[in-house]
Every structure is written in structure tokens, then in C-alpha cells.
């Protein structure tokens, strides 16, 4: 392993970072599925910090625990007892089910690999869902969602159904949906996996230009080595651990091997 990478590994945990800079702080995060012979350990004590104002990529081979870690951070999967999951200054592990639901509603934006748009709703209606869930009146929510769609170049498509949009356009709607309620953390699961190279590139440019803000962290799980250079930091996972973290510069100089 090169000296650059060795240097960056130390910054997986930054004990000196101010609390308002750290969006996600994980300490000794473990997650086990099943029990007895069926027991599968997905996370083996993850220590990791994700910072505001950055786009952080989480990479690693299939089955290494990336999606499990993302789910734990997003509060849709409970970590094992003893894990410390602090997201946006809140102890997620100590939250009740309904508190987590409210936390997700208010603070997190989601982008899924398969977009998960409701097929019967127009682009604007789909993008407005987080606001509707928060209790906004329908016309106001759709107007705001249309504005956000306009920001990402989808102004002409607000009334189109998902079936009338290309894959890239659908992912843009999903991004608008993740941004519309101004969340402080955006989690994305393989946002470019279902897209061709050109469209995937456009989507990542969009994330960089629209999603990343000083008071917001963007965390992206990806396999796609064509987009690694977009990340301010790239964390590589293997066998339930974060094994290295690189800066953007280090990533460009020596791209990590996702399968390593």
C-alpha cells in the first residue's frame, strides 16, 4: 500500500474534529444477522466519521457490509447493542422506532439504486413526497418540488410519469426527491449502477453541484470505479470494517481497487 494511502487511513476517525463538522460519528458499530449456525456478522466494529460539506463514497466488494452500514446510519436498521451511532448530533441507536421515523423524515434524503419512484405519480408528485410526508399541503409541496426539478434541469418533465422518463431522468427525479425537504444528510445506494457511463457521470456532477453544501453531508455507496474521483473522501470497506479512507487527491493519484 502506498504512503499516501497510509497517511489517509488515519483520518477515518478524527477525534479532534468539531461536532458541527462531523455529520456521522460511528464507534464500534456492529451488526449481526440471525443466530446460532445461521449467524452472519455484517459489521465488525466500524469506527468512522463522515463530514459535512463533503461527498463521501463508500466502496468495497459485494457482501462487505456497505449497504448494512448505510442502513444503520440512515436509521432503518438497528445496530447491535454497544454500538455508537451518532448522526447529525443525535444518538440514533438510542432512538425509539417512531423517533427514528421522524428523524428520517426530517433529516435524511434518500436516493435508491432502482429509484423507487411511484409509477402512478408524476415527476413533481414523486419529488414532493418527503414534503407530503412532513405534512405540507399538496399544491405547495408540488410547487416546491417543481422548483427543485427545475434546478436540476427537469423543468420540462415535471408532469411526466416515471414510465415516460429515461433512467437518468428518473434518477434526477429521485435526487430532487432527496433534496426537496432540505435534509442535512443524503444517503445514496448505488445511484449510478443502473445508468450508462455518460448518464452516471451527469448524475454525479449533479450531486457535486446541487447536493453538497457546507451544512450537509452526502454519503454514497457505490461499486462504480468510474465515479470514485467525485468523492471528497473515499472509504473502502472489507469484511465488515472500514479498511482505508482516501482523500480525493489520493484517489485520483492512485484509484482504489474496489475488489481489493
Amino acid at each position: 500500500m502506498s504512503s499516501v494511502v497510509e497517511a489517509q487511513r488515519a483520518s477515518a476517525v478524527d477525534a479532534q474534529a468539531s461536532p458541527d463538522r462531523v455529520a456521522v460519528r460511528l464507534r464500534n458499530v456492529r451488526k449481526t444477522f440471525g443466530s446460532g449456525d445461521q449467524k452472519v456478522v455484517a459489521l465488525r466494529g466500524v469506527d468512522w466519521d463522515v463530514f459535512n460539506g463533503q461527498m463521501t463514497l463508500l466502496i468495497g466488494p459485494s457482501g462487505c457490509g456497505k449497504t448494512t452500514l448505510l442502513s444503520v446510519i440512515a436509521g432503518i436498521l438497528d445496530a447491535d447493542r454497544g454500538s455508537q451511532v451518532c448522526v447529525l448530533g443525535r444518538d440514533v441507536a438510542a432512538m425509539s422506532g417512531s423517533q427514528k421515523t421522524r428523524f428520517r423524515r426530517d433529516s435524511i434524503g434518500f436516493v435508491f439504486q432502482q429509484y423507487n419512484l411511484l409509477p402512478a405519480l408524476t415527476a413533481a408528485e414523486n419529488a414532493a413526497i418527503p414534503l407530503i410526508v412532513k405534512g405540507w399541503p399538496r399544491p405547495k409541496a408540488i410547487a416546491r418540488a417543481s422548483e427543485v426539478l427545475g434546478l436540476i434541469g427537469m423543468a420540462q418533465k415535471v408532469n411526466k410519469l416515471p414510465s415516460e422518463l429515461s433512467g437518468g431522468q428518473q434518477q434526477r427525479v429521485a435526487i430532487a426527491r432527496a433534496l426537496v425537504h432540505e435534509p442535512r444528510l443524503i444517503v445514496c445506494d448505488e445511484p449510478t449502477a443502473a445508468l450508462d457511463h455518460e448518464t452516471g457521470h451527469q448524475v454525479m456532477v449533479l450531486f457535486r453541484t446541487v447536493a453538497v453544501r457546507p451544512d450537509r453531508a452526502v454519503l454514497i455507496v457505490t461499486h462504480d470505479n468510474r465515479v470514485f474521483h467525485f468523492g471528497d473522501r473515499v472509504a473502502r470497506m472489507d469484511d465488515g470494517h472500514i479498511v482505508e479512507v482516501r482523500t480525493q487527491k489520493a484517489t485520483i493519484e492512485e484509484p482504489p481497487d474496489v475488489l481489493a
Binding site: I76, T101, F103, R104, I129, R177
Partner: peptide
């Protein structure tokens, strides 16, 4: 599932 993830009770 997506609605639940997005905070719908």
C-alpha cells in the same frame, strides 16, 4: 418500503 424509509409511519 421507500415511503417508510422516507419517514412515513
Amino acid at each position: 418500503g421507500a415511503l417508510k424509509a422516507m419517514g412515513m409511519s
